[in-house]
Amino acid sequence: MNPKSKISIHELTKVFYKKHNSVTALENISIDIEEGEFVCLVGPSGCGKTTLLRIVAGLENQSSGGFRIQKSSMDRPNQSMVFQERGILPWLTVAENAAFGLNMRHLPKAQVKERTDYFLNKVGLTKFAHMYPKELSGGMKQRVSIARAFANDPEILLMDEPFGALDEQNRHILQEELLSIWAETKKTVLFITHSIDEALYLSDRVLLMSAQPGKITAEIKIDLPRPRKLEDIRSNPEMADVFLSIWQHLQTEVQGSRL
């Protein structure tokens, strides 16, 4: 375990136990993530990547091993999660949703409003602040989710396939917006996706996972200058190779699980 890293996960194992039958969802996962680093976790569905994220998010307990998030300030929550679609509360307005984390910490009203307004503006939802989620499109809902997580100003951000349900165009717009807010706030991000394009576009480092038991099988550094353009990544021959090798890895994983 590297004492300087922002997130260190150390030999973390998760077993799901049912009567006479146990499944090892995660086996000896060790990851170190630097301060300000954007890391994508890529793997086939069912490889346990969501379970890993939920453990770090405090929503589930590991069976053995552990993880540590380095604190920079006592006022900051450890982590905030951007959930998959449906992650915003339908009975709260856009502004109330974005302020949810701050309100749960019972911060002063003025401070809550200031921070919420700032991030709603960042994601372009100021005009929709008083609407309910039912009136929003899928992309707008995920913007609310992103604003809520950033407004909470956590030590680290966890993202569980936040753009998985969006169409290609909207997904790319949200990825761009996310990167621009991230560049400004310099948060440490652990991001789950099964889209290789998304991982290459967003991350500093890609971690590949295999299924049953879930393990980290490879690590790929993405040393591209920022701000990035999707077109540049697509036309970069080196990235094409990376894409292909990740693709082949996922193919064999999926094939393997079908046998």
């Binding site: 929503l59 999660m81 959930f83 449906r86 949810f100």
Partner: peptide, 11 residues
Amino acid sequence: IYLDVAKNYGA
């Protein structure tokens, strides 16, 4: 998922 949100944001 709403219960998860509440828990994650420390309700």
